[in-house]
Amino acid sequence: MIQVEHISKAFGEATVLKDISTTFERGKTNLIIGQSGSGKTVFLKSLIGLHETDKGRIAFDGVYLDTLERDEQRELRKAMGMVFQGSALFDSMTVAENVCFPLQMFTSYSSKEKSEQVDRVLERVNLVDAHQKYPSELSGGMKKRVAIARAIVMNPKFLFCDEPNSGLDPKTAILIDDLIQEITREYNITTLINTHDMNSVMQIGEKIVFIKEGKVAWEGSKEEIFVTNNQAISDFVYASDLYQNVRKVYIEKAKSKT
């Protein structure tokens, strides 16, 4: 579980995060949504410690980040996996070497054990024939899957994904969403996904935090989004006719059930 208590972050004169408090539960896919420039990425990077917050506290399974020394924070980060927006695979390494990297850095496994673990996670993300390929030889979807494999190879407790669907076609995006949700349940981890993809919201949003202008404007589940009266989230989610129609159908179905 991740507890966020009153965090704020400013860059110079611009305050990007304003007193954000929320909780992300284990075993659930938690989505952070909001318009471009709303502070989602800064929020995610603050959670994993890439940005230092100006105010507030963050606790990972009850351990407050600000009580830890820098080296202890690095130790804690070994329990975190991160899928970056651009995948952030190491260009000079093959797929297998990328996935094996955390094992090589932090475990004393034998070569055979490392190789088995790499095979296992690559199989888990449905990439069995790409071991010797370099990132430049992969498609966007494959890169994302390698990034997910690298993020879960150390059996993390927390998984962070920054726009995992960006630049992917709708079909591949759904596959990636499903994969993240399956992994969250399978490994029983706390997953946070930063997105502005409404398909993801409707598909895997077990808990959704809507950030607007650096503040939490709404939070709830994907089911609650359909019935909420919150104007901010409604304006954002139902900006397109498609989702307005989806909402109508959902409400009608719910009425007919009752």
Partner: peptide
């Protein structure tokens, strides 16, 4: 610099690597 702009350095830091 290329590693910085493609977030590879961030990836190292998140993994707990100095």
């Amino acid at each position: 610099g290329s590693m910085r702009v493609t977030e590879q350095i961030d990836a190292l830091e998140v993994m707990g690597v100095n």
